[in-house]
Computed example of a mutant assay.
Amino acid sequence: MFTGIIEEVGTVKSIEKNHRSLLLKISAKKVISDLSIGDSIAVNGICLTATSFNHNSFSVDVMNESIVSTSLSTLKNGSLVNLERAMPINGRFGGHIVSGHIDGTGEITSTSKCGIATIYTIKTSPEILKYIIKKGSITIDGISLTVLSVSKDNFEVSIIPHTSKNTILNLKKVGDVVNLENDLIGKYVEKLFLRSDDSSSITRDFLYKHGY
């Protein structure tokens, strides 16, 4: 599990393309300081497993599902990526619950300034938009962000200077593709409502009574 608080920006050192898979080698400092083989690292929001590492880089295998469902196919040698280690059990929960399982991608359609903030408008599919609510949480390239507004075909987020400075979002331009992960809570609630098992004690009235 992750929190969406980016720890550092790494650099793609090499990309080895195999049959329906990739082997990425990424340079980093902070996230490898206590790394072990098999540990999870979120790369642009995608939960990947460290298969090897040395004093200045680590490698991860990427299966076909991750390639076709995310923006990983756009990476090149030298590309910058957001990195976050899995949350330690005694760590601070600075963002929101992030699984690292990308729901899909979105396209940046516009950016604008509003005081110190930068507003990003992102177009995405109805399947993703249905879980996005105003003031709710969304993960963009692994960054935990608060939704500013939602329309029928896009949503907006507002980025403070600290986030721009310490992530790759400030490098993104109109037309660029970003990874999106919806808040888990909405998906689980929907699953409960759509259950065909009438014996379930979780009903709309039950949820309303308990404040949901």
Rank of each mutant, 00 (worst) to 15 (best):
P126W: 09
I185V: 13
H19V: 14
N44K: 05
T124W: 07
I32A: 00
D198E: 13
T163S: 14
I138G: 13
V147F: 04
T203Y: 08
E84S: 09
G211S: 02
S151K: 11
F155L: 01
I102E: 03
S57Y: 04
S201D: 08
P161N: 03
T163C: 08
S164A: 14
V68H: 07
G38D: 03
L22F: 14
G78T: 06
K191A: 13
I89G: 04
T51L: 06
D153F: 11
N18H: 14
R195M: 08
D176F: 06
I37P: 00
L145E: 10
L207F: 11
V157C: 14
K191C: 03
K130V: 07
T11P: 02
V9Q: 13
T121M: 00
H162Q: 14
R85A: 01
E65S: 10
D183I: 10
I108V: 12
L83S: 03
D39V: 03
T111L: 02
G94M: 09
Y188F: 11
T167C: 14
K187A: 00
F53N: 00
I116T: 13
H96L: 02
G10I: 03
V9T: 15
K123A: 12
D61C: 00
S112C: 06
I97K: 01
S66I: 02
S149W: 00
S79D: 10
Y212M: 15
H19Y: 11
T3M: 09
L194P: 03
L184D: 01
N18Q: 15
I202C: 07
V178P: 07
H162T: 09
L180D: 12
E181H: 12
L35N: 02
D141M: 13
L192W: 08
N182I: 09
L145D: 08
R92Q: 12
E190K: 14
H162R: 12
T146R: 07
I185L: 15
S144T: 10
S52G: 07
F93E: 03
S40I: 01
E181Q: 10
L145Q: 14
E65V: 07
K134L: 02
R92G: 05
T105D: 11
I108H: 05
H101Y: 05
V178S: 09
K76C: 07
K76Y: 05
K123T: 08
F155R: 05
I97V: 11
S137Y: 13
K25Y: 00
S144Q: 14
S59D: 03
L184S: 09
E8P: 02
G10F: 00
V9M: 10
S110E: 00
K152N: 15
I46R: 04
V81H: 04
T105S: 13
F2D: 10
S73T: 06
I67K: 09
E127W: 05
G10V: 04
H210C: 02
S57Q: 06
G186R: 12
I132N: 01
D205H: 12
E156D: 13
K187Y: 11
S27K: 07
K187L: 08
L72G: 08
